[in-house]
């Protein structure tokens, strides 16, 4: 485990403990009231979901054409985090939508595209779990296809129908909303890095056990 891990884990724990206080102290948004606060969880987790998907896609392509098993472990860990943060995003989104749009689910472009991306990540994990030996390569292929598919899903769903608040409100958000948002985004990013490292370490240990096992040559 690298030296930075423990201090960062402590920092992350502190940030996660402080974030609710900051969020609680942030002003009520005029139309949405209390429900708007779910946004401090929803947006950062959606960003982490996206980041995990990108990491998984790039690592997969590098594994497919380079064959470095480190990249494979990175892709696997990122895919699991994509599923995890995807669940948080897809659960908190409807909580907000219920208040804002009056329905739990809207077939809006970003929602639908996120759901499809999440499905690909789940399919990736299913393939790794049930595909048997050799499924690492196949999963990398799936991740590559999933990545190439993002613009198509986005465009097709967009034509199909669309309503969603655009992200460009974020930079212009008043500081009273912005500080807790960026704070919790930083906490999520830290959590993401730590979990990724931890998950990769698990696979590294596994690979080492396998190597040790195989090196016991009589």
């Amino acid at each position: 485990m690298p030296k930075w891990f423990i201090p960062l884990a402590i920092l992350c724990g502190l940030m996660c403990a402080t974030a609710p206080i900051l969020v609680a102290q942030a002003p009520y948004e005029s139309t949405m009231g209390l429900v708007q606060k779910v946004f401090y969880v929803h947006l950062p987790s959606a960003w982490m979901f996206l980041l995990a998907a990108i990491v998984c896609g790039i690592a997969s392509v590098r594994y497919l054409f380079g064959g470095d098993s480190r990249q494979d472990r990175l892709a696997w860990a990122a895919a699991e985090l994509a599923v995890l943060f995807g669940v948080v995003t897809l659960v908190t989104g409807p909580l907000w939508a219920r208040k804002a749009w009056g329905v739990w689910w809207q077939w809006d472009v970003r929602l639908t595209a996120s759901l499809m991306g999440w499905m690909v990540a789940v399919a990736y994990l299913l393939l790794r779990k049930y595909g048997g030996p050799g499924s690492d390569k196949l999963a990398a292929g799936l991740a590559l296809f999933g990545m190439a598919n993002v613009p198509f899903v986005y465009i097709s769903v967009n034509y199909w129908r669309t309503i969603h608040p655009t992200t460009n409100v974020v930079p212009t958000l008043p500081t009273s909303f912005g500080v807790p948002l960026w704070f919790s985004a930083a906490a999520f990013l830290l959590l993401f890095v730590l979990l990724l490292r931890l998950r990769m370490r698990l696979e590294e240990q596994r690979a080492r056990i396998d190597a040790l096992y195989l090196s016991m040559d009589t």
Binding site: V120, L127, G131, N149, V153, W160
Partner: peptide, 30 residues
């Protein structure tokens, strides 16, 4: 491509639709 690569995999019958449908959603929508 998916059916060909899944030949080597276990549970290939169930995995084919699992992998194929999320990727081909744009085709179905269009």
């Amino acid at each position: 491509l998916f059916a060909a690569m899944l030949i080597r995999a276990r549970s290939r019958d169930v995995l084919l639709p699992v992998l194929l449908y999320p990727i081909t959603v744009p085709v179905i929508i269009a």
